[in-house]
Nucleic acid binder design. Structure first.
Length: 858
RNA sequence: GCCGAAGUGGCGGAAUGGCAAACGCGGCGGAUUCAAAAUCCGCUAUCCGAAAGGGUUUGUGGGUUCGAGUCCCACCUUCGGUACCA
């Protein structure tokens, strides 16, 4: 290492270039002497054995009293890119738990499948003409190869794909149940329609009224299928208390549902003949502080005044028209980000009448009010709402104080006072606390017929249709009205589809499969690609023409209930049998990314509750315990992405180091939930560990278990078991490393210790585990071998070394019997730190048995 | 802004309110080797010191406690989510 030859080129350091280090390690591995443990031979061999012997087939005796665990991964979308190293993180965690629980005598269901409908396959089809089913099959094949190569103990006989007609059939069946219960309905929804692309765009894809590539986007109303998830809002919020989920996820779900209690209040608008103006507020107690009201740009009254000349001066009308035109075509998200910076709005010139005082207040239109929440209009109380305050300041509107922290008046308010307090300047309500005032105001309004208490939700009904090809067809058709009775709509005969008379496809006719298309483009009308499949779309029944729904379901549909199909995947008579349900449900452990904290988990819970109401499922909640694995970042600490060039491919790692090493490394990186960077240089540590386990177990084993080894063994079993139960995988591996290092130092490692080591390592590194189990004289797989137990007596020491502190600083240590009394401890402690105590008075002595002694001196 | 998570050696990280830095990577020294790789052994938070030993240290500042990485308050930073939700 010393610079004896300064002219020689410097060696590349392992950490300098992530890709270079992987390649150089790979290159270095090949010319080497044959490894004692050859992962390239051993790993595929055991994978074949597990396959051939169906080792991990989940079976459960209906009469069994054995405990069960249903261990579920969030199943992947089989993309063309294959697995990235983030996938095996959660999958390894569930696999370890599955393997551990099997060894602990528990029946385990651990399935895997494919969430295979979705946009990438369709977009690829549009570009290349390759049918999405072809792309999907190919990608599934690749994903499955990669998962098998990692040695996961899935019961592959239960594999399902959301695109399989036998699966689609039951997805559609659930939709029909929703439809029959009135939970699926059609509505006209404003969408971001981009004529140039021929597609509807998501809010995040629209900026400044344009698509990413600058094509103009129109906000147009479109007929959509909706699911009435709002009918379940309260139960979705309340039942969160039944599950063992991360606190953050629970909070996000509650916030998304956004239940808030308040009141709707009616304002008359002078000169407006339509319905009165309704507002929703969570603070009815501030009603006496209203100084103006605000409409969202899409509010019907704004539309009415634009179209009705003569109610207000024309220049006002035109200003409103300009403002609405400028704001209404922007996506909600876009609108709100800019609105947060600058409170824009215009005075309509209309006048609203206060429901209690009869006072007249101006009506404004502003885009800080959202059309889709509450009633699309608010009563503005600038004295007690920050947004109203900012708006009033910007536009010179009056600000009134009606809630006071101390019951006194404070003149000019410098900021909105949004806390609760005591009503002031509120007429009959003066002196009431906020809570009392809320109900008093609601009672008064109710008496006047101008308002009532109301619960409002942020949650909106779920837009369930997509104008796409690669999704489940919605099993609905509509009567067709022909202009001439003998016309054929397939040949373009003029006709009208009666969308207001939807008819459910007969359940016996399911699945309704997709027609084969060559052109998958969404098309130039928003009805979607299926509208062009006229032979599929139109059909005759009893002499009448009908048209099928041409919208398809969103990708969420298949993932909403896949956990239920895994329990009985081959059943063609019903969605799943009651026996299968009783055997395996609910899901005991569900692991997946935090990016699904709201939508997927909320939608799946919603469907589960609907099935609960239908009597199909017995538990109110599907997923008992949920864990999110943390993201694995690239070597540079940034999110892995192709564009950054920091993506690590599991195929490379498995080829060079083996599946067990990838599994061990990902579990050793840190806590499962933590976000952590990939560091190729760290792999070396688990490679050494694996090879050391192999080396220790393949030496000549001894028959005697020395006392110190026995103690360490029992302690190790105890800690490993406990940490496994807590899913603290990184500390399990540390503990096993310590144990292996100890065994490696022995002349002949004791057989019992080595056998238990192999069993404990096997959930993490199953290939090495099985191979060593075989090499140590066992014929059967260790997959169902009983998990080692420990003797508590061997986990406690007879004598303990206890640090002695003086005023909290360690100044000495003493050896004590484990059951030493406090007096004995005191005597030993004072003696050991005698010199430090010279001339000082002992004020207090604290002894925590076996842990610490602390002498407090004055 | 709000909600959530987190800040500990050169790096990944460990630590029921009780010896901070386990385990691993890297580094340094040694054994083995003609030499290297691999392997094995030892040392490795930091500062002062030849050593014995001592001081300091878990983002910052306070607090509670015999004792705080851990609990409380305020602040700073990073990451994730989310957004005028009335």
């Amino acid at each position: 290492m010393s610079a004896e030859n300064p002219g020689a080129p410097t060696e590349p350091t392992a950490t300098a270039e992530p890709t270079a280090s992987t390649e150089s390690s790979a290159a270095a591995a090949e010319p080497r002497e044959p490894l004692r443990y050859d992962h390239l031979e051993v790993e595929p061999r055991w994978q074949r054995v597990w396959d051939e012997q169906e080792t991990f087939r989940a079976v459960r005796d209906p009469a069994s009293t054995r405990p069960k665990r249903y261990v579920l991964d969030m199943f992947p979308y089989p993309s063309g890119d294959g697995l990235h190293v983030g996938h095996p993180e959660g999958y390894t965690a569930t696999d370890i738990m599955s393997r551990y629980w099997r060894m602990a005598g528990i029946d385990v269901l651990h399935p895997m499948g494919w969430d295979a409908f979705g946009l990438p396959a369709e977009q690829y089809a549009i570009r290349t003409g390759t049918h999405p089913s072809e792309t999907t099959a190919r990608n599934i094949g690749n994903f499955k190869r990669q998962l098998k190569m990692l040695g996961f103990s899935y019961d592959w006989s239960r594999e399902v794909s959301t695109t399989d007609p036998r699966y689609v059939r039951w997805t559609q069946w659930i939709f029909l149940q929703l439809f029959k219960k009135g939970l699926a309905y059609q509505d006209e929804i404003t969408v971001n329609w981009c004529p140039a692309l021929g597609t509807v765009l998501a809010n995040e894809e629209v900026t400044d009224g344009k698509s990413e590539h600058g094509h103009p986007v129109e906000r147009v109303p479109l007929r959509q299928w909706m699911l009435r998830i709002t009918a379940y809002a309260d139960r979705l919020a309340d039942d969160l208390k039944l599950v063992d989920w991360p606190e953050g996820t629970l909070a996000m779900q509650r916030a998304w549902i956004g239940r808030s209690e308040g009141a709707t209040i009616t304002f008359a608008v002078e000169g407006y003949e339509g319905d009165t103006l309704k507002v929703f507020t969570t603070r009815p107690d501030t009603l006496m502080g209203v100084t103006y009201v605000v409409l969202a740009p899409e509010h019907p009254i704004a539309d009415w005044m634009i179209k009705t000349p003569g109610k207000v001066p024309d220049e006002r009308r035109e200003a409103v028209q300009r403002y609405v035109a400028a704001t209404v075509n922007r996506s909600d998200r876009d609108r709100l980000t800019s609105a947060a910076k600058e409170k824009t709005g215009v005075d309509t010139g209309l006048v609203a009448v206060h429901p209690i005082t009869g006072q007249k207040v101006p009506v404004w239109v502003a885009d800080y009010v959202l059309g889709g929440y509450g009633t699309g209009a608010v009563m503005a109380v600038p004295g007690h709402d920050e947004r109203d305050f900012a708006f009033a300041r910007a536009h010179g509107l009056p600000i009134a104080e009606v809630v006071s922290p101390d019951g006194k008046l404070h003149g000019t308010l410098e900021a909105a006072f949004t806390d609760e307090g005591i009503a002031v300047q509120s007429g009959a309500f003066d002196g009431l606390t906020t809570a009392a005032c809320k109900s008093a105001v609601v009672v008064t309004l109710k008496g006047l017929g101008r308002g009532d208490g109301q619960v409002s939700y942020k949650l909106r009904d779920w837009v369930f249709s997509r104008q796409r090809y690669w999704g489940e067809p919605i099993p609905i058709y509509f009567p067709v009205e022909l202009e001439s009775p003998d016309g054929d709509p397939r040949k373009g005969a003029p006709h009208r589809v009666l969308f207001d008379q939807p008819i459910a496809v007969d359940e016996a006719e399911l699945p309704l499969t997709l027609p084969d298309l060559v052109d998958f483009r969404p098309g130039n009308d928003p009805a979607g690609a299926l509208a062009r499949a006229v032979d599929w779309r139109y059909f005759q029944k009893e002499g009448r023409w009908y048209a099928r729904e041409t919208n398809t379901m969103p990708q969420w549909a298949g993932s909403c209930w896949y956990y239920l199909r895994f329990i009985d995947p081959q059943n063609d008579a019903e969605i799943f049998s009651e026996a299968a349900y009783d055997a395996w449900m609910p899901v005991d452990l569900y692991i997946g990314g935090a990016e699904h904290a709201v939508l997927h988990l909320l939608y799946a819970r919603f469907w589960h509750k609907v099935l609960h109401d239908l009597g199909r499922v017995k538990h109110p909640e599907p997923f008992t315990k949920l864990v999110h694995q943390g993201m694995i970042l690239g070597e540079d600490g940034e999110k892995m992405s192709k564009s950054r060039g920091n993506v690590v491919n599991p195929d490379d790692i498995v080829r060079v180091w083996g599946a067990d090493v990838l599994r061990l490394y990902e579990m050793f990186m840190g806590p499962l939930e933590a976000v952590k960077p990939w560091q190729s240089s760290q792999i070396q540590g688990v490679v050494r560990f694996r090879d050391r386990v192999y080396a220790v177990a393949t030496r000549a084993l001894g028959d005697t278990l020395q006392d110190d080894t026995a103690r360490l063994l029992h302690r190790t079993v105890k800690k490993v078991t406990r940490d496994l139960e807590g899913m603290s995988f990184n500390t399990v591996i540390s503990t096993l490393m310590i144990f292996v290092n100890h065994l490696a130092g022995l002349a002949s490692p004791p057989r019992e210790a080595v056998h238990k080591l192999i069993l404990m390592v096997s959930p993490f590194a199953p290939h090495v585990g099985e191979e060593l189990w075989r090499l140590t004289g066992h014929e059967k797989s260790l997959a169902y071998e009983p998990w080692p137990t420990w003797d508590e007596a061997l986990c406690v020491d007879d004598v303990v070394e206890v640090p002695v502190q003086v005023n909290g600083k360690v100044r000495g240590r003493i050896i004590l019997a484990k059951d030493a009394t406090e007096d004995q401890a005191r005597a030993a402690a004072l003696e050991s730190v005698g010199s430090t105590l010279a001339g000082k008075q002992v004020k207090k002595f604290i002894y925590v048995p076996g842990k610490i002694a602390n002498v407090v001196v004055g």
